[in-house]
Design a protein around this nucleic acid. Structure first.
Length: 418
DNA sequence: TCTGGGGTCCTGCCTCGT
DNA sequence: TCTGACGAGGCAGGACCC
């Protein structure tokens, strides 16, 4: 599997046993900071903080030199500067990061068509089908690391495993500039001693709830009763964690992803009481949201706003429109109307507008019902419709797809489908 | 220390239609 | 006509991810 190299990371040697693996998780090392060094080599070896030095900016990324001082992503820049006063603060260049990301993803796609980008700096790859072309998963991982370094000029870390979850955990442990291969037969051995917080989906709250019940490692999760896990984190997360702790993760690498919402939000440099100004900001954000919808040829059925007050208390309000729209004025009016419903008049630090329940322009709902159809055929028709019309019909497809097992089928009018 | 911006998913509560 | 059970959807809040 792998060994410690003295830096805290665990890495595999070239040629490590990769039996039963097929999934790679590739993660760029300190991506934003690496791109800045690429564009300005004089920054090489220095502690770098990516973020704005003024206002209420937080750290978007930090070089490993800065991380040694305790600087972390999402930390207020002012705090980071106190921890590492010698750090160079660099304003983020998001377009440039997108550009480099495209170069890296192009390398992945030259190796396998089964690439699932997770964000600008990481992706899952399924390399099962390219063995004859490029070699075993471990060999492909090594090839990717070399090509990203040679062709783009930055380093990345790769986890190789039988499942997405284990591959993701492995790449994290291998960072920076490392590779960790977990052969399928050693999955449980790999998972068992690791802290629950290392699992994908366990954040500070879930970790605290688990640890309060003495559940500290992934082995503890495996050995805990379902009732205990349910009480700690709720039934949905509990079931997921129990499966992942057993090394089970049936998720495949998905190359297509459909956005479910688009939004914009903005934190002011200073808290704002002026409601006229806040209304105009909502309108401006609504315009930006609408512009994105129109570019994507989508419209939205539900508008939501977010208001965060000076004490960080956050309210959201949402409203489903009579008619879907991609018109900024209409979205803005809905946002302002929602804002008027909020009675609290304290200073505001953030406002946001989001469009939800997206559908293609003109892609109206479709009725799928035939009393003579059996459920299997209805499900097939739904699948066809989803393929043809995209996201607009997916929610309905799920409802119909549940079938008679969860209660008697109802007429589509019960689902708002007519 | 004092908390960005872009998202997804889950939960609980309430309302509505059958 | 009324009532209760049930399922589904809308809405609000929160956790989590990068």
């Amino acid at each position: 599997m792998g060994h410690g190299d003295g830096s805290g990371r665990i890495v595999s040697a070239a040629g490590a046993d990769d039996t039963g693996t097929r999934i790679l998780h590739v993660d760029m090392d300190a991506f934003y900071a690496s791109v800045e060094v690429l564009d300005d080599p004089s920054l090489s070896g220095l502690p770098i903080i990516i973020g704005s030095p003024d206002g209420r900016s937080v750290v978007s990324s930090a070089s490993y030199e800065a991380r040694r001082y305790g600087v972390r992503s999402a930390m207020p820049v002012a705090h980071a500067m106190r921890l590492c006063p010698t750090a160079r603060i660099v304003m983020p260049h998001f377009h440039r990061y997108q550009e480099v990301s495209r170069q890296v993803m192009t390398i992945f796609e030259s190796i396998t068509p089964l690439v699932e980008p997770l964000s600008v700096d990481e992706a899952f790859l399924d390399v099962q089908g390219v063995r004859r072309l490029w070699g075993s998963p471990g060999q492909v991982a090594q090839l990717i690391r070399e090509r990203v370094q040679d062709e783009v000029g930055i380093s990345c870390s790769v986890g190789v495993a039988a499942t997405k979850h284990v591959a993701k955990m492995a790449s994290t442990i291998a960072k920076p500039d490392g590779m960790l291969v977990v052969p399928a037969a050693r999955t449980l051995e790999f998972l068992s001693p690791r802290p629950v917080r290392a699992m994908w989906g366990v954040g500070p709250k879930a970790a605290e709830a688990l640890e309060a019940r003495g559940i500290r490692t992934i082995r503890d999760i495996r050995e805990s009763s379902k009732e205990m896990l349910d009480r700690a984190v709720g039934p949905a997360l509990s079931s997921r964690l129990a499966q992942l702790a057993r090394g089970e993760d049936a998720r495949s690498v998905e190359t297509e992803r459909v956005e479910k919402s688009v939004g914009h939000e903005e934190t002011f440099d200073h808290d704002v009481l002026d409601r006229t100004f806040l209304r105009s900001e909502l309108l401006r954000l609504a315009d930006r949201v609408a512009a994105r919808l129109r570019r994507a040829e989508w419209e939205t059925a539900t508008i939501s706003i977010k208001i965060r007050f000076d004490d960080f208390r956050t309210l959201t309000r949402s409203q489903t429109l009579a008619e879907p729209t991609a018109v900024g004025q209409r979205i803005g009016e809905a946002a302002q109307a929602l804002f008027e419903q909020i009675e609290r008049r304290d200073p505001v630090r953030l406002v946001g507008v989001r469009a939800e329940k997206l559908r293609p322009v003109g892609g109206g709902g479709i009725a799928l019902w035939d009393d003579d159809e059996d459920w299997r055929r209805v499900e097939g028709a739904v699948d066809d419709a989803v393929a043809r019309f995209g996201n607009a019909t997916i929610t309905r497809a799920r409802h119909l797809g549940r079938g008679p097992g969860r209660g008697a089928p109802q007429h589509p009018k019960a689902h708002g489908l007519d």
